[in-house]
């Protein structure tokens, strides 16, 4: 496959032609905050709105997950405009995230913590008010626990369940602020035909889907995705 050369933050990198900018950057060790992206998914959801970058020649920040790399593209991931949007989007997510790192099984292995660290912002929203949905935690499944209050609606779990496992246990339901990942007819996970392959737990960036009986990690580890 042909390679293209581009510059991100002054660093020249090469990436396969047709690759999305987000993956080109991540593969070259340049971190861009992201939640909803999955490399195998060729139709990016573009829902989390965190991977904003500035590309020379464009007047507005664009999402890196939807932008295909081009030869001699000049990208800035630390521009003022794109960081403002990323921080604003992140604060919005955190304002509606049931923050409980101390008791969360994803602690120290959480994409949200990583993004907060990268953006140098606090996990607690500074200006925005906390608006939570207070949905019941679903612990009916023998293999995993689903806490919708921690979900950021990235849709990764749905994508792997449908495209890798070919099962389609859950999907998005409801509209607007009430949107959530749930099973058909809002049945508890335990009563769905999920066989507990835990693919969804593996891709979940937050503590919304965690393995039952998992031990909180103490050391700092890099997330799978």
């Amino acid at each position: 496959m042909n390679q293209v050369t581009l510059t991100i933050n002054g660093i020249r990198i090469t990436a396969p032609e047709g690759e999305k900018l987000l993956w080109a950057a991540l593969d070259n060790g340049i971190y861009i905050p992201n939640l909803c992206g999955l490399k195998e998914n060729t139709e990016p959801l573009a829902a989390c709105r965190l991977c904003f970058v500035e590309i020379q020649g464009r007047n507005k920040p664009v999402t890196a997950c939807t932008e295909t790399v081009t030869e001699r593209m000049v990208v800035d991931t630390k521009g003022e405009q794109c960081l403002r949007l990323a921080k604003s989007g992140f604060e919005l997510l955190m304002a509606s995230h049931a923050l409980d790192c101390g008791h969360c099984l994803k602690n120290r292995n959480c994409e949200l913590q990583r993004i907060a660290h990268h953006l140098r912002v606090s996990l607690k929203p500074r200006i925005l008010r906390k608006i939570l949905r207070d949905l019941p935690v679903d612990d009916s499944h023998p293999a995993f626990i689903y806490d919708p209050n921690k979900c950021v609606l990235c849709g990764r779990c749905i994508w792997v369940c449908r495209n890798h496992v070919k099962s389609g246990v859950f999907g998005f339901a409801h509209r607007g602020f009430q949107r959530r990942v749930t099973t058909f007819g809002d049945e508890p996970m335990g009563r769905s035909d999920c066989d507990g392959c835990l693919e969804c737990v593996r891709v979940c960036p937050t503590g919304a889907l965690v393995e039952r009986g998992a031990v909180p990690r103490l050391g700092r580890t890099e997330p799978v995705y």
Binding site: R49, G89, L92, L93, A95, R129, H174, R175, G176, F177
Partner: peptide
């Protein structure tokens, strides 16, 4: 708009909710 937002993207789903409050 808050009620009619589909809820897919962060800004529209949560931003309109914050502004409304």
């Amino acid at each position: 708009t808050q009620r009619e937002s589909c809820g897919k993207c962060t800004f529209c789903r949560l931003g309109t909710r914050q502004m409304l409050s």
